[in-house]
Design a binder for these strands. Sequence first.
RNA 1: CGGGGCGUAGCGCAGUCUGGUAGCGCACUUGACUGGGGGUCAAGUGGUCGCAGGUUCAAAUCCUGCCGUCCCGACCA
Length: 565
Amino acid sequence: MRQSQLLIPTLKENPADAEVISHRLMLRSGLIRQLASGLYTWLPMGLKVIRRIETIVREELERSGVQEVLMPVVQPAELWEETGRWAKMGPELCRLKDRHDRDFCLGPTHEEVITDLFRREVQSYRSLPVNFFQIQTKFRDEVRPRFGVMRAREFTMKDAYSFHLDQACFDATYKEMYDCYSRILTRMGLDFRAVQADSGNIGGDNSHEFHVLAQSGEDTIVFASDGDYAANLEKATAAPPPARSESTEALQRLATPGVRTIEQLVEFTGVEAHRCLKTLIVAGDNGPVALVLRGNDTLNDIKAGKLEGVASPLRMATDAEVRSAVGCAPGSIGPVGLKLPTYVDHYAASVADFVCGANENDVHLTGANWQRDVPLPDASIVDIRTAQEGDPAPHGQGTLRFLRGIEVGHIFQLDRVYSAPMNAAVLDPDGNSIVTIMGCYGMGITRLVAAIIEQNHDDNGICWPEPLSPYDVHVVALNYERSESVQKAANDIEAHLTAAGYSVLLDDRGERPGVKFADADLIGLPHRITVGERGLKEGTVEYRKRTDSDNRNVPVNGVVECLRG
RNA sequence: CGGGGCGUAGCGCAGUCUGGUAGCGCACUUGACUGGGGGUCAAGUGGUCGCAGGUUCAAAUCCUGCCGUCCCGACCA
């Protein structure tokens, strides 16, 4: 392809609106242009990358026995009403009406549509298991689109859905998909981690996210220093704390005027934060609920939101609610004598002789102890703290370490959440109607483009991994327009490379060499062949890998061999 | 949705405080020179100053409202 004929609008300067490196480079190298917040046009080079990603994804999914379909973007409200999501989904579900005033939405996901397809077309256990995928546009009216295509409102997703008669069958497919995702990301040359994840409001223990490691990642992922434990921070848990030691202090009241925060309490009492317990009041299904944590811990609201009786999503009680429920202001609350349903974090439960609020303004208790001063039923001990770096890892696997990651894939068990209300059932061998178990497997195609760039760039631009590059080879012809020898040599090389199966971008523009080199680095094709009169006199051209810093002279007719070697 | 920025030529910005001819760099067009890491000179093209209303002899500039967009906190591929 002639570069002079391609729309590759490179930018010399960083666009003011782009913050993260991948977003900047995608704009600067002419991969995308923004249309509106969270909406992007993919230019020729960007689309090439998407196509190559899709090819890898397709090949591996088909290898895993998943069959491709394509469902509509626009979906009728009736299906969403069947599962209750028409009412449950907030404004992120973009709703619209057709000319007959019927309700539709832009699909943010396709569980309803695929389940509807399945129940209409599949009736026998003999057809199971079955797994469908599509690569298709999704629309989610995100609260805050950001970082370019990393979190866009309209984006391309590969989503797959499987149907099973029983759990064992599902487990096998889940494992297959886990391996499939690992193969896909490995083929792309990405440094990634599969981590245990929170499964959102779906439930079920089977849930893994696939994260591409990058500083700009929106998620914190936690892994064990000496083992294979890895989880999203939302889900991560530390090893249980050591058993509580014996109480040694007597319970005492302590006037603490003006002390509201743990920091102030530590300052005032001289007791370390991990022995000062904080009590948070959150909204519950039947009135407020108290949550007790160590002073040096922070609440994990995902974990807390799942507790029985606690409102989900989690909401902190207002000052007024706290006053009427506890009788004092936030800052002086404590578990002793508290007349509210109470959950105690397992680390807080392991503390003896602790300091806490006395449920009376400006008063705290010291030397407080579980069981002696306040009951601690086993059922109230839960894990609601956010794991900290350095915590002991579960199963004795060393300590917990943190990394940042970009979530590019998520696989999980849907169980019968959709199949039951929509009655996606088949007949088993005995003629019984069995509601199927479903699995769901997502991968963000357009987000992958950004993630790949986050991991493959340098100060000068993108460094495309070979399997994903928009073109394989960049032939940079210097003085192409005016030098017949350069023109002929460049054209010949392009022809030879093409015949050998390489895709070629030939820079035939009338730009000066400096401009061409700068653009070549920015665009970042993995291989660059520089054709100039200087070398041609010696019968050579120059080869340079994008990630190398030096050129290598190769004979004009030895370019294909050079790339193969 | 709460907090904070920003909207002036395709891109990056100055001008706004203190109202008075709409500017700079890059890009783009033409010509000349140049020709291996974003070159030089010359001449050009391109702007309802986000939108609407108001104040004023006069508004990019002051006032009001709205819109767009980005960043920081609750959702998700």
